[in-house]
């Protein structure tokens, strides 16, 4: 089910609607934009991926991720939670709770897509395991399985891939654990069987193929931040005014726009500012990038 653009209001988020389109404040007033915000095709979404465990090329994940075993799968949830343990994908995202979320995805490399995810709010999962009062951050880890993830057999990065969110970011209704897209189970190259999606942050925050979720009281060290702290911050909020040291973030190229599609302006918080800006009130986003 798709709602019309005029239905996209911040309140809708909190009413736990079954589905809502990528919330773009200005789009409601400019229906012409709606056409430009059509989701990318399944073909595009599954053949243009950054999933470095399977290689650094954009098509490497599509070529190499077929070998990944995603069933059985267990997500170890621990740290400052009431019910730590090993959870199956069905435990975390039972079929009857899964909803569709059509979100823009903005990669730190200045390209973007629109993706119809299936998933559950991360908050529902965290509530299920019971977050203890001391918890302030959530740390995530991707699977480490060199047998099936060729790039992990080299020392090209410090595996396993790690990401993290502040607890309020994790509990935000826009933040989901996705288990599928286009009404299908998650393709391996997109982070099967379960991955994070945080639509107002650069794509690398949305960690794939998650096996570990830990609630902590300390800000976790994330993979990119550890590797190049000057280039990748903990927050990694989409922000057209804070450039990557080596390239501009002011504009982006929409994948699928065609040879002469040109560029479009990048929106603050990827267009989700109405919903998330208050999380960062008082913070200097040029410093906490």
């Amino acid at each position: 089910m798709k709602l019309s653009w005029s239905d996209v209001t911040p309140e809708a988020l909190f009413l736990n609607r079954r589905a809502f389109i990528a919330g773009l404040g200005v789009a409601a007033a400019a229906p012409a934009l709606a056409a430009a915000e059509e989701p990318n095709s399944f073909e595009q979404i599954t053949n243009y991926n950054n999933f470095y465990e399977f290689g650094f090329g954009k098509t490497d994940p599509a070529d190499n991720a077929g070998a990944l075993t995603t069933d059985p799968w267990a997500v170890e949830i621990g740290g400052l939670v009431d019910r730590p343990g090993s959870y199956s994908v069905a435990d975390l995202a039972p079929g009857n709770a899964v909803e569709e979320r059509i979100y823009r995805l903005r990669c730190v490399e200045a390209w973007s897509m629109v993706i119809p995810w299936l998933g559950v709010p991360l908050a529902s999962v965290l509530n299920k395991v019971g977050v203890q009062s001391g918890a302030k951050f959530v740390a995530f880890e991707t699977l480490y399985r060199p047998d099936e993830m060729p790039e992990q057999r080299r020392n090209s990065m410090d595996w396993p891939y790690r990401e993290g969110l502040r607890l309020d970011e994790a509990m935000h209704p826009l933040t989901i654990l996705a288990t599928g897209l286009y009404g299908k189970p998650m393709p391996n190259q997109n982070g099967a069987p379960i991955r994070l999606v945080v639509p107002w942050k650069y794509g690398f925050k949305s960690i794939k193929s998650i096996v570990k979720i830990t609630l902590t009281d300390r800000q976790p060290v994330t993979t990119w931040q550890a590797m190049q702290p000057r280039e990748y911050g903990f927050y990694a909020n989409v922000n057209p005014t804070v450039d990557h040291p080596r390239w501009s973030q002011a504009t982006e190229r929409r994948i699928g726009a065609g040879l002469l599609g040109g560029r479009q302006e990048t929106l603050m918080f990827n267009g989700y500012g109405d919903q998330v800006a208050q999380l960062y009130a008082g913070m200097d986003l040029a410093r906490d990038y």
């Binding site: 080596r246 390239w247 190229r253 040879l259 002469l260 560029r263």
Partner: peptide, 21 residues
């Protein structure tokens, strides 16, 4: 210039001046 930047002249010039690569 044409395909990637869509001839956004001001950003192109700024980028060439500002981006080492």
């Amino acid at each position: 210039a044409v395909l990637d930047m869509g001839l956004l002249w001001s950003q192109m010039l700024k980028d060439i001046a500002k981006r080492p690569y």
